[in-house]
Amino acid sequence: MYEHLEYYGVSKRVIEAMNKIDRKLFVPVELRESAYIDTPLPIGYGQTISAPHMIGLMCEYLDLKEGDKVLEIGTGSGYNAAVMSLLVGRTGKIYTVEVVEPLYKQAKALLESLMLENIKVFLSDGKSGLKEYAPYDKITVTCYSKKIPPALIEQLSEGGILLIPIGNEYVQVLKRIRKQENRILEENLGDVRFVPMV
């Protein structure tokens, strides 16, 4: 279904994971006929489910490997966490944080119903990360922030990758941050459009 994402540089491995998780389950009932279109869709409470190509690219940029321990800030519908859970495998873990309580409850119930046992969903403010399970091999943020929250850098393991949109409501850049030998390496991956960090 998402084979066209190869055009964006998304690997077959990521596309296979996306094809196994039905995006239709993660969008509101009235929008299900649009579930497979490559566009963001509203999921309520001012939040969206990202376009499939953006989910594919973010998984690619994170370089997700079997056994990775991942923190996601902004569970939203839960679709991104579900796809990542397949990419990190049974030995990996996805810890995902959502601040909007109704979305947290919906995503938690849906992910549990799909029996994706390597995902834990938390109701919490993402700016402070999730200290109790740190450090993380990979951290991904699905909403933009005006600056990089220091807690996320602290909770990133040595050699880890943090992916975060930085900017304002008009201009945002997707940044990939690497932590190497106590240095922070920053890379711009292009312009993006995300909802704000609440």
Rank of each mutant, 00 (worst) to 15 (best):
L111T: 13
I184G: 05
T140A: 09
G190Y: 10
S11K: 06
I164N: 03
D68T: 05
S157K: 12
L123E: 15
L64R: 07
T75R: 06
V83L: 09
D38C: 07
I166S: 01
E132I: 07
T48R: 09
V83Q: 01
K146N: 11
I21C: 13
A35I: 14
K24T: 15
E30W: 04
A109E: 15
V198M: 05
M197P: 00
P135K: 02
S124L: 14
L103Y: 13
S50F: 01
A35G: 08
T140Y: 02
N80R: 05
K20A: 12
K20H: 12
G167T: 13
E187R: 07
Y144V: 05
N188C: 10
E154A: 10
E181I: 07
P40C: 05
P165L: 04
D63A: 05
N118I: 00
Q172G: 01
V99E: 06
M58T: 12
K175A: 07
E98R: 12
V100R: 12
Y7E: 15
S157F: 00
I164C: 03
G89D: 07
Y36C: 04
A17H: 04
P196E: 03
V173I: 14
A17F: 01
G129L: 04
V141A: 04
V192R: 03
Y36D: 10
M58A: 11
A107F: 11
K127Q: 14
H53W: 12
L103H: 12
K131I: 11
I94F: 10
T142S: 13
L103E: 00
R32T: 09
G89M: 01
D191W: 08
K69W: 04
K65L: 08
S85Y: 03
G67F: 10
L123D: 15
G159N: 05
P42D: 12
N118G: 02
N168P: 05
S85V: 03
A134E: 15
P28K: 09
I161M: 04
C143E: 03
T75S: 02
V192P: 03
M197F: 09
V121S: 06
N19R: 00
L116M: 15
V192E: 01
F122T: 02
V27W: 03
I119W: 01
M58R: 00
V88S: 00
N118F: 02
P42E: 15
E117P: 00
P42K: 08
V83C: 02
E181H: 08
V99F: 14
L162F: 01
G126K: 07
K179S: 03
G56L: 02
S11Q: 09
E6L: 14
E158T: 05
P102N: 07
Y136A: 01
E60F: 05
P165T: 10
F26H: 06
L103D: 05
L64E: 02
R193D: 12
E3H: 04
K138R: 14
D38S: 08
V171N: 09
P28L: 11
R23Q: 14
I166G: 01
M115R: 12
V29D: 15
